[in-house]
């Protein structure tokens, strides 16, 4: 009976709002299943877990040397690892997700069904974000167990949560690239360039500027805060208990200047990198012809 009535409904309009949660769930699960066939996600999960395991082994070896377990240091190396791998995978997965389907005509086929563009868009993001979360969770899960001699569970959970946030932010940027560009090849190229910029070039630029023009500390810190990778790094270091004092005068400046608001600032930067690109991508996706 209900099935009959639904079939009788007119085809949903594109800008239909609110979205149907049931439809969203179905589509997101479909996206998750597709992500399994995407070898990038699997490859990343394995690579991340393997590297984290290697780090754990190294940490154990050096702990044995002086009887001092430098967990903070190991965790810091883990942060470094996350900084390189997570954005690379999230950006590349995000950048291919829509443009590929559009090229193959699958997107047109999907949108011909009684689903709105908003639903398809949100489902894609949620499904892929879940896949990223799974990859990060497995990586950290393996390393937490391997490093259990020196680790603190709460710290691992915190790091994993932050890494997931970073992955979602980079995924949002990747999806934006995927919506805007016409060809898969160029989308991947742009994504890798963004990754290189955020991971290296931006920092090299700030360092160069600081050395040549004596930037003010507030400028250095703000420019660094805007970079989601650095915001992630600072948020995870601030979690190790010492504030940002390990990051020298600029870190101490930020700690005294912002005090308790510092974590809020760091998280706000990460959240902005999730919300803003996603919003832009959503607007573009609804407006663009297929």
């Amino acid at each position: 009976m209900t099935a009959m009535r639904r079939q009788a409904e007119p085809v949903r309009r594109d800008d239909a709002w609110p979205v149907s949660p049931r439809l969203l769930t179905t589509l997101a699960l479909k996206e998750l299943r597709d992500a399994l066939s995407n070898k990038w996600v699997l490859l990343f999960t394995i690579a991340f877990a393997a590297l984290a395991l290697g780090l754990a082994a190294l940490a154990r070896a050096s702990a044995g040397m002086t009887g001092f377990a430098g967990f903070g240091r190991t965790a810091a190396s883990l942060v470094n690892l996350v900084l390189l791998l997570t954005p690379l995978m999230a950006l590349s997965v995000g950048a291919t997700c829509i443009v590929t389907e559009r090229e193959r005509g699958m997107l047109g086929y999907l949108l011909a069904q009684p689903v709105s563009r908003t639903e398809v868009f949100l489902a894609k993001y949620i499904g892929l974000a879940l896949a990223m979360t799974a990859a990060v969770a497995v990586g950290f899960g393996v390393s937490a167990i391997a490093m259990s001699g020196a680790g603190d569970g709460a710290l691992f959970l915190r790091l994993a949560a932050l890494s997931a946030l970073l992955a979602w932010a980079m995924l949002a940027v990747g999806v934006l690239v995927s919506v805007v560009l016409r060809r898969t090849g160029s989308a991947v190229g742009v994504a890798v360039f963004i990754w290189l910029t955020l991971a290296l070039l931006a920092d090299v630029g700030i360092i160069g500027a600081a050395l040549t023009t004596r930037l003010r500390t507030v400028t250095i810190f703000s420019l660094t805060l805007v970079n989601p990778l650095q915001a992630f790094k600072m948020a995870s270091l601030a979690g190790f208990g010492a504030g940002l004092d390990v990051l020298g005068p600029a870190g101490v400046w930020a700690t005294t200047e912002f005090g308790r608001r510092l974590p809020i600032l760091l998280y706000a930067s990460l959240l902005a990198w999730i919300v803003l690109p996603l919003l832009a991508a959503w607007v573009a996706f609804r407006r663009r012809p297929l």
Binding site: N80, D203, I207, A210, T217, I220, L247, A250, G251, W253
Partner: peptide, 14 residues
């Protein structure tokens, strides 16, 4: 050593 504020970039790939 030239600008100690650059310790801000410790523990990152740069």
């Amino acid at each position: 050593a030239r600008d100690s504020r650059l310790r801000l970039f410790l523990y990152s790939p740069v």
